[in-house]
Design a protein around this nucleic acid. Structure first.
Lengths: 122, 122
DNA sequence: CTGCATCCTCAACGATACTG
DNA sequence: CAGTATCGTTGAGGATGCAG
């Protein structure tokens, strides 16, 4: 067998890196899912809803998602300030795929945990 | 608004952590995709096909996938040794979802790169 | 050929304090 | 309320060498 193996992972031509570099971090998928459950959410509401995320990481994650055109940010010039976040159409098209992954995880989590225990036992 | 916000991310009850902890690392999705294109592959073939992965990370990734019951490992007691890897049924059920993500990435990558450039200028 | 052991680096992440 | 700035930690991942 010579070279019928398709080459993956070359940086500029890797669809997997493309996807994982954006939603494969610790919080992006979570933020997208939470935003997908409401029309709009304020920063503080997102923070409360996700719970364990730090303020810094929520800011960073939202900025990245905004830069990618997955989240729309609206500032209301009030005192105190009011900032609302919502998904863009691009994110709406991604959301079902994420939900599919979550559903798969929920269905298979029990078996996987069991498999891992058995594996640990050797 | 009080508490109609669904709480995510509590460690033991978080479908997103469940999924990301397994395929959200740097190489798992890639390995699953490559294995999905062949019946079985030897360690060296996987290594060549993925290209940029280090030997260590390929070993670690394969062990994790095996522990989760996503990859089946078969040793042929020869000298030199021959080890073959293939997807399990559980992994086959996950693979289409990953392909959907990759397709989405390929379709949207151009727009996202453009959005990010505009954002950087902004 | 297929690994395991070791060391090291770097970036993601968290904690804390401060600001308009 | 919604951030920014700074610092310290941690662990994923790479490089290298050795082994069955």
């Amino acid at each position: 067998m010579e070279n019928n193996l398709r080459k993956f992972s070359e940086v500029d031509n890797c669809p997997v890196r493309n996807v994982l570099d954006r939603i494969g971090d610790k919080w992006s998928m979570l933020v997208l899912l939470v935003l997908g459950e409401s029309e709009t959410l304020r920063f503080g509401e997102l923070h409360k809803s996700i719970g364990t995320i730090s303020q810094k990481m929520l800011t960073v994650t939202l900025k990245t998602l905004e830069a990618d055109g997955l989240v729309k940010r609206t500032i209301y010039p009030q005192i105190p300030p009011r900032v609302e976040y919502e998904l863009t159409e691009r994110a709406e098209s991604l959301l079902p795929l994420i939900h599919n992954l979550v559903d798969w995880a929920e269905k298979n989590m029990g078996d996987i945990k069991q498999a891992r225990m058995n594996y640990a036992m050797g």
